[in-house]
Design a protein around this nucleic acid. Structure first.
Lengths: 133, 133
DNA sequence: GTTGTACTCAACCAATCAGTTGAGAAGGAG
DNA sequence: CTCCTTCTCAACTGATTGGTTGAGTACAAC
């Protein structure tokens, strides 16, 4: 659900042409023809790109006679930012915890000096196989 | 260059399985087998996914006997966050400018009450066809 | 040495994707 | 009405992708 929409957003932005279009739309709304102008591809190809951006929720299209002005929807960026920040934070927390463990090891314990630690993954949290979604 | 690496990062995160792996790696390092366990795909498939994440700079692999523990590289997230925030800000600025224009129109002018506004793109910035890359 | 584990590489396959061309739909202008 | 512009839809093509299986590498353990 939210998973699928995140996939669409990331996939939409994985294409440099589409990222460039987002950059242009951030400056102001534009029609398909205006968006197509700087590239040497057909308008149909650009129309397809816009469709991808639209289905990802990044862009909305309205009507103005024959023209279809495209508008950037900024809210979707929040979705991405939240996802990224979550794992960014977790990774940073993990570093802090690892530092703490290393400090503790240096501090009080030398009895685990050999690798008889049957978990061969240093720093591996056993909850890793648990729920993570 | 930086463009290409951004494409790789977004493309890597466009797959829900790979995003799930990133979520697991944010909790702690894990081997290929451990990452493969919760999914009903072959280890080769998981190995490929990790390779994609690695080439995107999101993950690094070290050696531990036969095992190849995977580690999340958090710095790459900054690259994405910066890109997103740039256009998020631009879009928000644009809204603010549009608000200002609307306020000005309400304030001093009633002569454009019908739609003879020859610029049929409300809010369209003429600089859009100019340099934007 | 042989066996078993953890993993990668190479080749293949079906599905998706980014592009094309050709045909139209929608609507303003002569 | 006809012409022209703007754009979408449908069908096709070549490249990429996510998966498979089979073989091979690296290393520990017996």
């Amino acid at each position: 659900m939210s998973d699928d929409s995140l996939s669409r957003v990331f996939a939409a932005l994985a294409d440099p042409t589409r990222r460039d279009m987002v950059a242009r739309l951030a400056v102001g709304d534009a029609t398909v023809g205006q968006l197509a102008a700087p590239y040497d591809v057909s308008m149909q190809a650009v129309s397809k790109h816009i469709k991808v951006l639209e289905e990802a929720g990044l862009v909305s299209r309205s009507r103005d006679a024959q023209r279809r002005p495209c508008h950037l929807e900024a809210e979707v960026f929040d979705l991405m930012t939240k996802w990224i920040e979550r794992y960014q934070q977790r990774a940073q927390e993990r570093y802090r915890r690892l530092d703490a463990v290393l400090a503790e090891m240096n501090d009080g314990a030398a009895h685990t000096s050999n690798d008889n630690n049957n978990n061969h993954n240093p720093g591996l949290d056993p909850t890793i196989t648990g729920a993570a979604s």
